[in-house]
């Protein structure tokens, strides 16, 4: 083909099969219809198109604006506290609005311990549920069980708190607490007076609350593993568990870590239920029974009664810290989940 001259030179002008008279007669046969005249009169609507595209883009960019505005306003409003305490703010213990001494360490401690403890409880359960739903569950039960765990996600935080105050707290005080002291007292984790409210109760309610998000994301991720992977392992004579472990879990581990981190992000920022049962005491607790305080709950409790600019500023700085930490945790988690599900959006509700 390349040795030939260009094809255009070989092809003569196209020969039409019809005479020119027929062409012209066809054209002048009738006037354009009403429909045709109307459509020809319509403009190019280029302006409308550009305006619409710009409006959509503006709305999309409003998401950047929201994040930017939250960050800027939090930094501006916490200037006072940032200037006064510097980095010391986060390592200092002591929270005395009267003397103007503010250190956020007890809240950081309380947030981290309650969230990690909640993960410790929730992750194995969530994995169990996800494995059960994707790999073991009879087909008929699949939808109802997924639906129930999603309902769990739809219950508002304040209702969890209400239930925790009136049901979980008495159970912790009268049954589970004494039980833990009796059998696990040697660990020195369960010491001091047990009023039912405290770090452990907060962790349990947090665990219940983050379970649905972890299990539903893990389920999505495990379902994204191609069936051929499962069949390949089964064909080697593996049992069901070996199939799950080698064929499924190994393939989705990055995504599962991402799902767990998303759960962590939720736990770090969870406010109402925790505020209602953690005891709200600004000291570093030495026992899981002891009352604690978290970043989110100190804001919820003290923000509206914060008198004095420094006090308010310190609370807003806590909010800023919470914002930055959850952004980082969520960003890492999203990247991990995306890596597995290839950008398919993860539904959160």
């Amino acid at each position: 083909m390349t040795s030939e001259p260009t094809p255009q030179t070989l092809i003569p002008a196209p020969q039409l099969q019809i005479s020119p008279e027929k062409l012209t007669s066809a054209r002048s046969e009738s006037e354009p219809s009403a429909v045709r005249l109307f459509l020809n009169s319509r403009g190019s609507s280029g302006l409308a198109d550009q305006g619409f595209a710009a409006l959509m883009l503006l709305c999309a960019c409003s998401i950047f604006a929201i994040v930017g505005f939250i960050f800027v306003i939090l930094v501006l409003r916490s200037r006072l506290s940032l200037a006064q305490f510097g980095s010391h703010f986060f390592t200092h213990t002591g929270w005395d609005p009267v003397s103007g001494d503010f250190g956020a360490f007890p809240f950081i401690y309380g947030t981290l311990v309650s969230s990690l403890l909640a993960l410790l409880i929730a992750v194995p359960l969530a994995l169990g549920v996800a494995i059960f739903i994707t790999e073991l569950c009879p087909r008929r039960l699949k939808a109802p069980i997924s639906f129930l765990t999603e309902l769990l996600a739809a219950i508002p935080s304040v209702v969890y708190g209400l239930w925790a105050v009136f049901v979980l707290v008495p159970i912790m005080r009268d049954q589970l607490g004494p039980f833990l002291v009796k059998y696990l007292g040697w660990t020195h984790l369960f010491e001091g007076a047990n009023f039912g409210v405290g770090l452990l109760t907060a962790s349990i309610i947090l665990a219940i609350m983050i379970l649905p998000i972890i299990s539903s994301l893990t389920r999505d991720i495990m379902q994204a593993v191609p069936n051929s992977q499962r069949e390949a392992v089964l064909a080697l004579g593996a049992t069901r568990w070996e199939m799950i472990r080698i064929g499924v879990l190994r393939n989705s581990r990055i995504g599962i870590v991402g799902a767990v981190m998303l759960g962590l992000g939720r736990a770090l920022g969870e406010t109402m239920a925790v505020t209602m049962v953690i005891g709200n005491h600004p000291e570093v607790p030495h026992s899981l029974f002891a009352p604690g305080y978290t970043l989110a709950s100190v804001i919820a409790n003290e923000f509206s009664e914060a008198t004095g600019d420094l006090y308010l500023s310190a609370l807003i700085e806590i909010g800023l810290a919470l914002f930055l930490v959850t952004i980082v945790v969520n960003a890492i988690a999203r990247l991990m989940v995306w890596a597995v599900t290839r950008g398919a959006p993860a539904r959160i509700s």
């Binding site: 998401i63 804001i299 919470l322 959850t326 969520n330």
Partner: peptide
Amino acid sequence: ADVLNGVPSIVMGIS
């Protein structure tokens, strides 16, 4: 948008 989804609601409140 995904990251904003994970920002705690209390932070929206104070902002």
